[in-house]
Simulated assay, not measured.
Amino acid sequence: MREQLIKAMQQNQILDIMYIAKDQSITKRRIKLIKLSGEHVQAYCFSRHAKRNFIVDNILAVHPVNKKVRGLEA
């Protein structure tokens, strides 16, 4: 998972992720990575319209957003 995140950050990609939140609920987020340090990711979350911190181990799935769709949904 970490390698996918590093590659996405290097390529300046927007990602859809499935994430386990603190309350153990599973959420889908659209993010743009800002910084990866240790086991934490700082990203802009389009769902919350704010910078958020994510724990790498809580990210269940990563999917790059198609550039053609990006302009419509991001």
Rank of each mutant, 00 (worst) to 15 (best):
Lys35Gly: 01
Lys28Trp: 01
Lys22Arg: 13
Asn66Pro: 00
Lys22Met: 12
Ile14Leu: 01
Lys22Asp: 14
Arg70Cys: 08
Leu5Val: 02
Ala61Met: 10
Asp16Met: 06
Asn66Lys: 11
Ile55His: 12
Phe46Thr: 03
Pro64Ser: 05
Tyr19Ile: 00
Ile55Gly: 07
Asp16Glu: 12
Val62Lys: 05
Ser37Val: 06
Ile6Glu: 13
Ile17Gln: 02
Asn53Glu: 13
Gln13Gly: 00
Lys28His: 11
Leu15Val: 03
Ile31Trp: 03
Glu73Tyr: 10
Ile59Ser: 07
Lys32Phe: 06
Tyr19Gly: 03
Lys68Gly: 11
Asn66Leu: 04
Ile17Lys: 04
Ile26Lys: 11
Cys45Lys: 02
Asp23Trp: 05
Asp23Met: 05
Phe46Leu: 08
Phe46Ser: 01
Val56Asn: 03
Gly38Leu: 03
Lys67Phe: 03
Ile59Ala: 08
Asp57Lys: 15
Lys22Cys: 10
Gln10Cys: 06
Ile26Asn: 05
Asn66Trp: 06
Met18Gln: 12
Gln13Thr: 02
Ile31Asp: 04
Lys7Ser: 14
Ile6Pro: 03
Leu33Ile: 15
Met18Asp: 13
Arg30Phe: 02
Ile14Trp: 00
Lys68Ile: 02
Asp57Ser: 15
Glu3Val: 03
Ile26Ala: 08
Gln13Tyr: 06
Gln24Pro: 02
Asp16Cys: 06
Ser25Gly: 08
Ala74Cys: 14
Ile14Lys: 00
Tyr44Glu: 02
Ala61Val: 09
Leu72Ser: 10
Ala21Tyr: 01
Ile34Ser: 12
Ser25Gln: 15
